[in-house]
């Protein structure tokens, strides 16, 4: 006796294949660890790189359009400069943690990344007292000096960012 197999429309079959491939890519991609951090934790991380690498700290959020727009450029520059370490600090709400991780993965960020775990006021004052609270916010620390050589609120061009990075590497 013949058994009629259910016919699956090609469109659905294609969608299922893409879904399976997407899950496969996701599971094979290098992992991101999102670590809660205060301003003091971030500054400790910066201090550990003193003498070996300049450090760029970028405070961003998935809800911040300019942050999302400049993010790929920061990832690209981090890869281009061996003597630069980039610390991404998300200011997203804690309940949006999975969205942050997904975004970082899509951007190709691997390893440890940070999630703000402190009140706004304490975090802002702890990181840079004259920062108004506007995102994105970027601080660049000198490789040898370990001190701030550049900082800015909002987006910057690649040329401006690279000038700051080169300055930090020489400093």
């Amino acid at each position: 006796m013949d058994v009629a197999l259910p016919v699956i429309p090609i469109r659905i079959l294609r969608s299922l294949t893409y879904l399976a491939l997407g899950l496969l890519v996701e599971s094979c991609s290098p992992s991101v660890k999102l670590q809660p951090a205060t301003a003091q934790d971030i500054l400790r991380e910066v201090n550990q790189s003193r003498g070996s690498q300049a450090v760029l700290v970028n405070v961003w959020a998935t809800w911040c359009q300019p942050c999302v727009e400049e993010f790929p450029l920061l990832v690209k520059l981090d890869r281009r400069y061996d003597q630069l370490q980039t610390l991404f600090v998300s200011a997203d709400f804690p309940e949006d943690k999975s969205r942050v991780v997904q975004f970082l993965k899509r951007q190709g960020v691997t390893g440890i990344s940070f999630l703000k775990d402190q009140s706004d006021q304490a975090f802002i004052d702890g990181l840079s007292p004259d920062w108004s609270g506007t995102l994105p916010f970027t601080l660049v620390f000198g490789k040898e000096s370990g001190t701030v050589v550049a900082r800015w609120e909002g987006k910057r061009t690649q040329e401006q960012m690279e000038a700051a990075i080169r300055l930090a590497i020489q400093n």
Binding site: S132, T134, V149, R151, W152, E153, A163, L167
Partner: peptide, 17 residues
């Protein structure tokens, strides 16, 4: 040049009323 760049980069913060 470096001092000028430093002044530029450290001056890029908003000045509130």
């Amino acid at each position: 040049k470096m001092i000028l760049a430093l002044c530029f980069f450290t001056g890029l913060l908003a000045k509130e009323l």
